[in-house]
Design a binder for these strands. Structure first.
Lengths: 352, 352
DNA sequence: GGCAGGGATGTAATCGATTCCACGATCCAC
DNA sequence: GTGGATCGTGGAATCGATTACATCCCTGCC
């Protein structure tokens, strides 16, 4: 593969001139520039990014460590991240942690070894020493979706509180009283926050969230299945299962079907994270939708701000409820009973 | 960030000794090795992969250019690729082409600039000059899923012919006679092959595939919607729509639902590529499943063989039909009418 | 005792770029 | 005509590793 020396030789100039010509430096004669370009074309020369990175100490690359590539939510996030990064002149290297802390560490480590310019992380746990050290050492970092408290790193996330309140209002209106949740790992913020938001919303309606109605999942389908089976085995099973992510909802659907039961007649289902497939499941699933694309773009902008010396800002965007049929039919689409303390935010009603 | 020089200074040895100690070179005294390790720990030193790559001319990184991250099929492929690569000591950088040839070229170019050791590609088109040149120039390359004819590059793919024949058998048994297909781009092998396999299978049953029953899609949901609407507007609409990938099937489902029609009563649906969600759609979708994980692993092994000087082999694995309810109920699960010329391969019947 | 052989280590070249500094040429102003 | 500024260019240092080669010292054998 041709190097800058070959180009210099072919163009009859020094490597310094080639470098300047290629980088748009002003003081290069038109003649020299033309000869360089010609040599570049003739040789099919492309600058070696490895060498360049070594010299300039920047890779123009962002690392993105997500919790699970098989989760459509993260996949959409990854797509928007790459898109925005590309627009800003950066590449993205994705690391998939598969919800496993040690795998997450593996990716953080190799990304750091590659001297990426900045790191976007959706942590699978409370934060490994490795990640915490990196943050303290000054590696530009931004948390997206999930975050780690007590670390001085900007966070870009969606706030689901209002949407969860809307969901509970919807559920109560349909007459449900025994509501259960499949939670994510307590070590993740999204794991604990969603439970707390749910509990708080229930409290507003005078309902409690007993421990037996809190199932411990891990954001993967299999755990949704297992927890749902546990719920169904209860002497008094819940009337509604709220899954804290879309994969656990899929698992719940599997479990319900395996018992020969029907949603929403036998048990209602709702999920956090809306995905295109929810429109076509049987029945269509009521879900809380995050502005995923916006989240990804905002996270990249914050990270690049940090990298390029500007001050990054944390961003919180609202999630919203999308009502479908998995919690029962709303026969009276007229009045929504306002919760005691606070009026609900506008609810989007899906066309399906 | 500490460099090898800092370690050398702290350990009181030369950089050469540090390098040797870290790379397990035999002729390093136990004493020196210990002092180096101590210094490494104390400084939190990690070798700079950029510098190392420049010197050794290898990055231990594979590039993977896929057609669409939002497609669960490719996402699963990417996961298995990364897994196998990691097991073999390589990292993977994913480039998402979004089914756009120019974006594919962008990723191939930046991957090449980064001097990745090898490239795994699922081409979105017939092959850009860039990619062809890279292959000819000797860049280790392997095609996965889709490929480009006439290029001397190993191909790892699934053969869907038998499964498509099984599908047509299933469809005929259910009494369907007017079968249509939503094809992928003709420039992709999977785009044209699936149409040909379908046509050939129909021929075995004495059926033809008229041009109006071949819709031109692009493997994205929106095109599936558009093509399906076209089919429904026909004076004589097809009884079955076979989508050449799962996203176009999703679009078809959207279109059918928007008209207030029902699957399979008004129109039957089948898809290439099986995904977990197909179990829970309304109705569950009959699909042709590829051994995706195996494909990804085999592709990595072939590429690494090529990189490390062994001879890579092309691999073709069989796809299989998974029958669900989207084509109609099979009330008589007894006898399958054998096609005239060839007996069908075993059909997996889904538990759903 | 001397020399060969080999183990441990250091010096320095190298990978392919960027960039500081120096130098020669040109040009303008005084 | 000369001094100084400007422009275009090349030489060489540099980034952080790896590794060929040289060196030194110790051991063992004749």
């Amino acid at each position: 593969m041709a190097s800058i020396k070959d180009v210099a030789a072919a163009a009859g100039v020094s490597v310094a001139t080639v470098s300047r010509a290629l980088n748009g430096h002003p003081s290069v004669s038109a003649d020299a520039r033309a000869r360089v370009m010609e040599a570049v074309d003739a040789l099919g020369y492309r600058p070696n990014a490895v060498a360049r990175s070594l010299r300039t100490d920047q890779t123009r690359t962002l690392g993105l460590v997500i919790s699970d590539v098989l989760n459509p939510y993260f996949t959409e996030l990854a797509r928007s991240v790459e898109e925005e990064a590309r627009a800003l002149g950066y590449s993205v290297i994705i690391g998939n942690a598969d919800e496993r802390p040690e795998l997450q560490d593996h990716h953080v480590r190799t990304l750091l070894d590659r001297r990426i310019d900045g790191l976007l992380v959706s942590p699978t746990d409370g934060g490994s020493p490795l990640m915490l050290d990196a943050a303290r050492a000054g590696t530009p970092m931004v948390f997206v979706d999930r975050w780690i408290p007590g670390v001085d790193v900007p966070v870009v996330r969606a706030d689901g509180q209002a949407a969860v309140r809307d969901l509970v209002a919807h559920l109560c209106r349909l007459g449900h009283r025994r509501l259960a949740i499949i939670a994510g790992p307590a070590a993740t913020t999204t794991g604990s926050e969603r439970v707390e938001a749910f509990r708080a919303a229930l409290a507003e309606y005078g309902l409690s969230l007993p421990d037996v109605y809190i199932g411990q999942g891990d954001f993967q389908a299999e755990s949704g299945r297992r927890v749902t089976e546990g719920f169904l085995d209860l002497p008094e099973p819940p009337e509604v299962v709220f899954a804290a992510d879309n994969l656990m909802a899929l698992g719940a659907l599997d479990a319900v079907r395996a018992r020969g039961l029907r949603v929403p007649d036998d048990i209602a289902l709702a999920a956090f994270d809306d995905i295109p497939w929810f429109v076509h499941t049987d029945p269509p699933v009521t879900a809380i939708a995050q502005p995923t694309g916006e989240l990804g773009r905002a996270a990249v902008r914050a990270l690049v701000d940090r990298i390029e010396g500007r001050t990054p800002r944390s961003v919180t965007l609202p999630a919203r409820l999308v009502v479908r049929r998995s919690c029962g039919e709303t026969h009276v689409p007229s009045q929504t009973p306002a919760p005691p303390t606070q009026s609900p935010s506008p609810v989007q009603r899906s066309t399906s």
